[in-house]
Amino acid sequence: MIDDPVNKHYKFTIPREDLMTPGHSACPGCGEPLALRYLLKALGPRTVINLPAGCAAIIPGVWPRYSLKVPLVDHAFECTAAVSSGIRAALDKKGVEDVTVVGWAGDGGTVDIGLQALSGAVDRSTDFLYVMYDNEAYMNTGIQCSGATPCGAWTTTTPGGKHIQKRHDKKPIMEMMIANGIVYGGTVSVAYPEDFIRTIRRAKSIKGPKFIHAYSPCPSGWRMDPRKAIEVSRLAVRTGMFPLYEFQEGRYRFTKEIKKRKPVEEYLRLQGRFKHLTPADVAEVQALVDREYEELEAKVEAGRR
């Protein structure tokens, strides 16, 4: 299953230092602490994070404990990007320029309830990095459908069964943000840490509003074996369900080229949330993924010209 070349020289392929301590409260196999871990490896200690309600509010530990080694500001659900704007404004007023402000929110906190604040902050050209860790539903409240839940997935509010409750796919948040005016956009997956870190560092080097869409598996909510978390994340990329690409200055570029996409069925069948899908449903999902992937390929191609 491994498509990364095995490093035979006992070399660490990502920075060794962690700005995060074990003992955090993530479920076993959760992708979110991995994403945070990679993020902090990429950004280093001169970082301020702010985050809303969600799994991310629980994972760093409950008072008086704290598992990160950078400052963190907590706030309500819908205001991530607005709080980032405020933090950046205050840092600017104090003349602090070399600190990266990171708004870190889940998919529901981004594409649904936090969309207004995010759009405003991008519109104001706030110099910050917004990371949406996408576990494809409201997981902290117990697996409710969000605007980022994929077509056909079971959640407690899309009980599924034979009928696919949600026929439309995830909100195209990257496209929405590009239209809104971000200076850099990138997708990252916890299955590709080297690419994850490279993309975050690239984003950090650019001034202005940056948007990162981070794929973050949720074994509890996706009804799968925790040990499969990375395997599933890798399949999401290799099937084209979650392509890795970046956007800058009007051009799209794949950061992980997939020469021959695997059938989505390989991805779907590892997860209980898709187990009710009939072959016809799977075909429908495949058609959807094909269409979206081809659209993206066309954009990447246009950027090459």
Binding site: V6, G31, L34, P193
Partner: peptide
């Protein structure tokens, strides 16, 4: 000693003292 386990551990519980 490819350290894949270290890289992917969400709990930072795979310890590698040095390369």
């Amino acid at each position: 000693r490819c350290y894949m386990c270290w890289k992917y551990c969400p709990d930072m519980s795979i310890i590698v003292e040095k390369e």
